[in-house]
């Protein structure tokens, strides 16, 4: 059966600055699983499962088998990646944690993933948040939940990002906040060359 789901930002078209310094796009194909479990018990149980340790340091992530494991809280993690990779990891994780109390949920439809990339991406994000986004402070693999504009979202700088290249930030946001966050990001990016959005039918874009 074909996948009939419509992503949260299907009505928006990706935006890219003419000089390539900034681009904004949705990542509708990303699969997500949320895990709630006691950290110590889980990592003891997962010792036998190769490569599957959960990061216990706050606001960090681990990249394993094509999946990013993001720390969201002392007993909460998010698995993020391609559908097949996340599914494969889910099965192994379920086996590893079978003996302890845990919750592993598909949160793909609950969240939207927005990617902001390019050499001006940090500056555009700095306009919206109080987080310290200096390259020496917010490094590849780092995760931080914060306010962007008025929306609560989780910011992640991909660990696989090559420091020689331009950074790619992922913003994981509740589905109902996605359109608002998209619009404030598009607005913040205008001074770095993002083109104006094409309004939806009946939508008035403030200048």
């Amino acid at each position: 059966m074909p996948d009939r789901r419509i992503s949260a930002l299907a009505h928006r078209t990706p935006l890219q600055a003419g000089d390539g310094a900034l681009s904004l796009a949705e990542r509708p194909q990303v699969a997500m699983r949320g895990l709630r479990v006691d950290a110590k018990a889980a990592n003891r149980a997962l010792k036998k499962t190769k490569g599957l340790a959960l990061p216990e340091t706050p606001n960090t992530s681990r990249h394993t088998e094509g999946v990013h494991i993001l720390w969201l809280g002392p007993d909460e993690w998010l698995f993020l990646g391609e559908v097949d990779a996340v599914h494969a990891l889910r099965d192994r994780l379920g086996d590893g944690l079978a003996q302890i109390h845990h919750q592993l949920l598909d949160v793909r439809d609950q969240n939207a993933v927005i990617a902001l990339s390019g050499k001006r991406a940090r500056e555009a994000l700095m306009k919206l948040t109080t987080l310290d986004l200096h390259p020496g402070v917010f490094r590849p693999g780092d995760v931080a939940g914060s306010l962007f504009g008025r929306a609560t979202a989780t910011l992640h700088l991909l660990e696989t990002y090559d420091p020689e290249r331009d950074p790619e930030f992922l913003l994981i946001v509740r589905r109902s906040y996605a359109d608002y966050l998209w619009c404030v990001l598009a607005r913040a990016g205008r001074e770095f060359g993002l083109p104006d959005q094409t309004p939806k039918a009946g939508e008035i874009m403030r200048p």
Binding site: P58, L72, G73, P74, E76, G145, S146, L147
Partner: peptide
């Protein structure tokens, strides 16, 4: 409560 961060 760290409402927008770790929610603890």
């Amino acid at each position: 409560n760290h409402a927008a961060g770790c929610r603890r």
